[in-house]
Design a protein around this nucleic acid. Structure first.
Length: 431
RNA sequence: GCCGCCGUAGCUUAGUUGGUAGAGCGCCGGACUGUUAAUCCGGUGGUCGCCCGUUCAAGUCGGGCCGGCGGCGCCA
């Protein structure tokens, strides 16, 4: 059964006099004298409907008793009227109540905490809808760009046996009589895939069992990862900036209305055209020290440092050339400075910070074994991964983008959890 | 793993030196000739997170537990 209907947003003043049928949910209800105003909501937006007692006593009576967020089908005639919120309304003579809602738990005074408790109902909200539309459009744009640039989409496993990040915590689970983990990155598998497909990408959930209580961490998030043969770090940065720029520009075109609900100033988004500034880790340390931040070469930048740094830019930027010892084992050592790794992060401006972490990968068998041992891990656990450096090894690079982090910046969200349907944090797995 | 904070009605909350819980919103009923999260009048609604203790008396003081929140570290 597909209900024949038109969307709220498609009702235009020029349709004056046309008879229409709408299906959706009661967004607002106001009773005044012999009239009931129902603002109807659907996935496209809202429109006001008006029930006049003299016009249809039956419909008026039903409209009067229907509750907020009830599901209804309304029929009536289009009237353009400046008093209606959208300049046009439906003079309704028929309402079918699919399910009446006596009272909807979410009212205007809901706290963030409560909204998360009833997230399944919070998804009724047009504002949540706008976030999800923007997220979907960002990925839609990413797919467009990746397709035209010749990248193959692949579908890596989520059930895995080992860690990518040395110290990162994995969710452990029983796999028959063995132990397995939820993947925290598809990277290792993508690296394997480039030997057949050269340029690959995937969008997968990634899981981190870290008790990170911050506004930029989730235990489950959507990870957009790219991996390519024959690319060095500098080739990779070009891919990153072109991809992210396309995602942003396209989303600005398609979702301007939704973005405006969250941010007034589009400057940083519009600025996000290649090239993005590239600063070295050394320069970043200099900038921070000149701002009076106590940080020495070799230390990793903390959240505060990152925030200060992002305020120096009005578009995303790269920090490259991190000290090797603060980066992951698979990153290639800088041949010109053995203290450094050929790694770069992309940081979003306006205090948002890291959205991408990427690097050239170590492609030399012996060096990779040495790095694994240095990190206190056992090369035996990485046998298949090491094989990739024994059978036709190639220089290659790749990166991972945290989709929710990008959404959070684009919409200036105060917390990454609003950028996902059902956020999972250390203390929340329900609903 | 570390530091800090909070649990009172469905929601948001007030509650003084310890004296027996109050409001707004929602909901229900009524009024109102066009409302914009309408307004006005009336009503409904409480195991004060849980346990133990101090006390004549605990929402309030003390201890423990549970749940959640903010931040750090780690990262995308």
């Amino acid at each position: 059964m597909m209900i024949e209907k038109i969307y709220c947003a498609d009702v235009k003043p020029k349709m004056e006099g046309e008879r229409v049928r709408l299906a959706g949910w009661v967004y607002r209800k106001r009773e005044v004298g012999n009239k009931v105003f129902i603002v109807l909501r659907d996935s496209s937006g809202v429109i006001q409907t008006i029930f006049i007692k003299d016009l249809s006593e039956d419909a008026y009576g039903k409209a009067k008793q229907v509750g907020i967020e009830s599901s209804v089908i309304i029929e009536g005639t289009v009237k353009s009227d400046p008093r209606a919120p959208t300049g046009v309304e439906i003079q309704a003579d028929k309402i079918e109540i699919i399910q009446n809602v006596e009272f909807f738990p979410i009212t205007k005074d809901a706290s963030d905490e409560f909204l998360l408790d009833v997230r399944h109902l919070h998804l009724h909200s047009p504002k949540v809808g706008s976030i999800m539309k923007v997220k979907g459009t960002l990925m839609q744009a990413a797919r467009e760009w990746l397709l035209q640039d010749g990248w193959y989409e692949v579908f890596p496993p989520i059930l895995v046996t080992g860690a990518v990040e040395g110290g990162a915590t994995l969710f452990k689970l029983k796999y028959f009589d063995k132990e397995a983990y939820l993947s925290q990155s598809a990277q290792l598998y993508l690296e394997a895939a480039i030997f057949g497909l050269e340029k690959v990408w995937s969008l997968t959930p990634s899981f981190r069992a870290e008790k990170s209580r911050t506004r930029r961490h989730l235990t489950e998030y959507w990870h957009l990862e790219l991996e390519a043969a024959w690319m060095d770090l500098w080739d990779l940065l070009k891919v990153e900036e072109e991809l992210v720029s396309y995602m942003l520009q396209r989303t600005l075109e398609v979702r301007k209305k939704e973005i405006e609900e969250f941010r007034k100033d589009f400057t940083t988004l519009k600025n996000s055209e290649p090239p993005f500034p590239r600063i070295s880790y050394d320069e970043a340390i200099d900038i921070l020290q000149s701002k009076g931040v106590k940080i020495e070469w070799g230390e990793d930048m903390g959240a505060d440092e990152e925030r200060i740094l992002t305020q120096e830019f009005d578009k995303p930027f790269f920090v490259y050339g991190y000290p090797k010892h603060i980066k992951a084992f698979y990153m290639k050592e800088d041949p010109e400075d053995s203290r450094k790794a050929l790694a770069a992060d992309m940081l979003a401006p306006e205090g948002y910070g890291e959205v991408i972490g990427g690097s050239e990968r170590e492609d030399d068998y012996n060096k990779l074994v040495q790095r694994i041992i240095e990190e206190g891990m056992d090369p035996k656990n990485y046998e298949w991964y090491l094989d990739l450096r024994k059978y036709g090894s190639v220089p290659h690079s790749g990166f991972g983008l945290g989709l929710e982090r990008l959404v959070a910046w684009v919409l200036k969200l105060d917390h990454i959890r609003w950028a996902t349907l059902f956020p999972r944090t250390p203390s929340r797995i329900y609903p």
